[in-house]
C-alpha cells in the first residue's frame, strides 16, 4: 500500500510538471502583455500551440540524419526526468535519491549537448551560430551553477534536493552566501532559458538569437516536443529556486494527502510569483549584445565562487 502511495506521489509530480509547464509560459506572456498595456493571448495559448504543431506534418531537411529525428525525444525525456526530480509539492519522493543537484545540472548539460548537435545536423549557418553561442554561454553558466550547488550543499551538508529543502525549512536564517547563491542562480536561470536580457524568446530572423536558431529547422511534432521541453526547463528552474530558497509548504516524506494538497497549492502560488517576477524583469531590461553575455554570466560565476570561498573559510557566513 505504501509503495503504491509513493509511486502515485511520484507520478503525480511527473504529470504536474508536465501539465504546468505550458501554463507558466502562457501566464508569463500574459503578464508581460498586461504590463505593456496589451491584452495578450489567453494563458492557455501554449497548449493550443502545442496541439496545433503536433497535428502538422513534419518537413525534414534533405540531409537530416537519424540524430535530427531522435533528438527532440531525447531532449524532452531528459528535461522531463530532470524536472521531475526537483521537489515541487513534496520532498523525499520515491525516486528523489536517484539523482542529486549535480546530476540534475549535468542532465541539463546532456540536453544542451543533444540540442546543439541537432542544430548542426542540417548544416545551415543559423544552426551553427546557435549551437556555438549556446555552448559558449553554457561554458560559463554550468560552472556558475556548480559553484552555486557548492554553496548550497556546503550549507545544507548534502547535495540531495530533498535534504537541502528540509535543512532550509528547519534552519530559517539569513546568510550572506544565501544571497550570493540566489542572485547567481537567477542569472543562470535567465541565461539557461534564453530569456531577456540574454536572448529573446519572441524573436525570429534575428542574428542575435540563440535557442531559436538551433531549432530553426524543426517543424511539426518535433518542434512541439522541443517547445514543451523548453517550457519544462523554465519550470524546472522556477521549482529549483522555490525549493531551495522558499521551501515553505513542501510536504515532508510520508506526509498525508492533506499536506500534499497544501504543498501543491503552495507550489502553484510560488510558480505564479516566479512567473510574475520573470515577466516584470523582462519588461524592465533590454536585450544585451551577445559578447556582453559572458560578463553577465561571469558575474554569476564570481558570486558563486565568492559564496563557496566564504563557506570554506567559515561556517558562519
Amino acid at each position: 500500500m505504501a509503495l503504491i502511495y509513493d509511486l502515485a506521489a511520484q507520478s503525480t509530480q511527473m504529470i504536474l510538471v508536465l501539465s504546468l509547464a505550458p501554463l507558466l509560459l502562457g501566464f508569463t506572456r500574459k503578464v508581460k502583455a498586461r504590463l505593456l498595456r496589451r491584452r495578450g493571448p489567453s494563458i492557455f495559448q501554449p497548449y493550443r500551440d502545442l496541439l496545433r504543431l503536433m497535428r502538422k506534418e513534419v518537413v525534414l531537411a534533405d540531409n537530416a540524419s537519424w540524430l535530427f529525428r531522435s533528438a527532440p525525444y531525447l531532449i524532452f525525456a531528459a528535461t522531463w526526468v530532470a524536472a521531475a526530480l526537483v521537489p515541487t509539492f513534496a520532498t523525499g519522493l520515491m525516486f528523489s535519491w536517484s539523482a542529486d543537484l549535480i546530476v540534475i545540472t549535468a542532465l541539463l548539460g546532456s540536453v544542451r549537448f543533444v540540442l546543439a548537435l541537432a542544430g548542426m545536423d542540417v548544416g545551415t549557418s543559423f544552426g551553427g551560430i546557435g549551437s556555438s553561442r549556446e555552448m559558449m554561454f553554457a561554458s560559463l553558466a554550468e560552472p556558475a551553477m556548480i559553484t552555486i550547488v557548492f554553496v548550497v550543499a556546503l550549507i545544507a551538508g548534502s547535495t540531495q534536493l530533498s535534504e537541502i529543502a528540509f535543512h532550509m525549512l528547519s534552519h530559517v536564517e539569513l546568510r550572506v552566501s544565501y544571497g550570493l547563491a540566489l542572485i547567481g542562480l537567477v542569472i543562470v536561470a535567465i541565461a539557461e532559458n534564453g530569456r531577456i536580457p540574454v536572448d529573446n524568446p519572441a524573436t525570429h530572423l534575428e542574428l542575435t538569437m540563440v535557442h531559436e536558431a538551433m531549432v530553426l529547422e524543426y517543424s511539426g511534432r518535433h518542434l512541439a516536443v522541443i517547445e514543451l521541453a523548453a517550457a519544462l526547463k523554465l519550470l524546472l528552474y522556477v521549482s529549483l529556486i522555490a525549493c531551495i530558497f522558499a521551501p515553505w509548504g513542501l510536504a515532508p516524506h510520508g506526509a498525508d494527502l492533506r499536506a500534499m494538497t497544501f504543498g501543491a497549492a503552495a507550489y502553484v502560488a510560488k510558480v505564479a510569483v516566479g512567473g510574475f517576477l520573470l515577466a516584470f524583469f523582462e519588461i524592465s531590461t533590454a536585450k544585451m549584445r551577445v559578447f556582453r553575455v559572458p560578463d553577465f554570466l561571469g558575474a554569476a560565476l564570481m558570486l558563486g565562487l565568492l559564496g563557496t570561498l566564504l563557506r570554506f573559510v567559515s561556517g558562519s557566513f
Binding site: V59, A61, D62, Y73, L216
Partner: peptide
C-alpha cells in the same frame, strides 16, 4: 527513466498528433 520517457513521448505524439513527414530543402530562414 530517460528511455521510458522518450518512448512515452514518441507514443503520445503518435497517438495524438500526425505521423506525416516529408523531405524538403533546408529552411535556413
Amino acid at each position: 527513466f530517460i528511455v521510458f520517457s522518450a518512448f512515452f513521448a514518441a507514443l503520445i505524439v503518435r497517438v495524438l498528433g500526425s505521423n506525416a513527414s516529408r523531405r524538403g530543402p533546408a529552411w535556413g530562414c
